[in-house]
């Protein structure tokens, strides 16, 4: 059953065209936790002088990871959508390194799921960005 939910959540993410375009891959998923990796790509650069990835690509990664965490929660909703997302940028990600996002869905009500997320590069001790957000919980009727 749990494996089934994880499979469904994985399928959900893998069917998102834009996440595929950004080269995202789920490396861990289950129980309201998701880890998604996004390899460095010169097309996602925001500052050509430094080669640092644009915040928008990090936002897309955080948003997808938050949604995945919600979908993998034991109270698995049928579907979800972002209500709001706040991202704090600590530093530019080191050019050339894969960005890894981890999101935890820490609370679910009847209609709303709350997540926290962190994005890191190879230096796991100094986050690139952190995020918190609220997602809808669509329960099939």
């Amino acid at each position: 059953m749990e494996a089934d939910k994880a499979r469904i959540a994985r399928q959900f993410i893998d069917s998102i065209p834009h996440s595929l375009t950004l080269g995202m891959a789920i490396t861990e998923l289950g129980d309201g936790f998701a880890r998604i990796e996004m390899p460095y790509d010169a097309r996602f650069v925001g500052d050509p002088q430094t080669g640092v990835i644009h915040g928008g690509a990090v936002s897309a990664l955080m948003d997808t990871c938050g949604g995945a965490a919600v979908m993998s929660h034991p109270e698995a909703p049928v579907s979800t959508a972002t209500i709001d997302l706040r991202i704090d940028y600590m530093r530019g990600a080191t050019p050339g390194q894969t960005i890894v996002a981890e999101a935890t869905c820490y609370h679910v009500t009847r209609a709303v799921a709350f997540i926290r997320a962190t994005a890191m590069d190879d230096d796991r001790d100094r986050p690139v960005a952190t995020a918190s957000g609220a997602f809808t919980v669509e329960r099939g009727t």
């Binding site: 998102i16 834009h18 996440s19 690509a57 897309a60 948003d63 579907s79 959508a81 997302l85 991202i87």
Partner: peptide, 17 residues
Amino acid sequence: LIGNPMLPAIHGGVTAA
């Protein structure tokens, strides 16, 4: 740019970016 192919809807990350 699609995030939800069922609706379909633009990816929230695209909108944010």
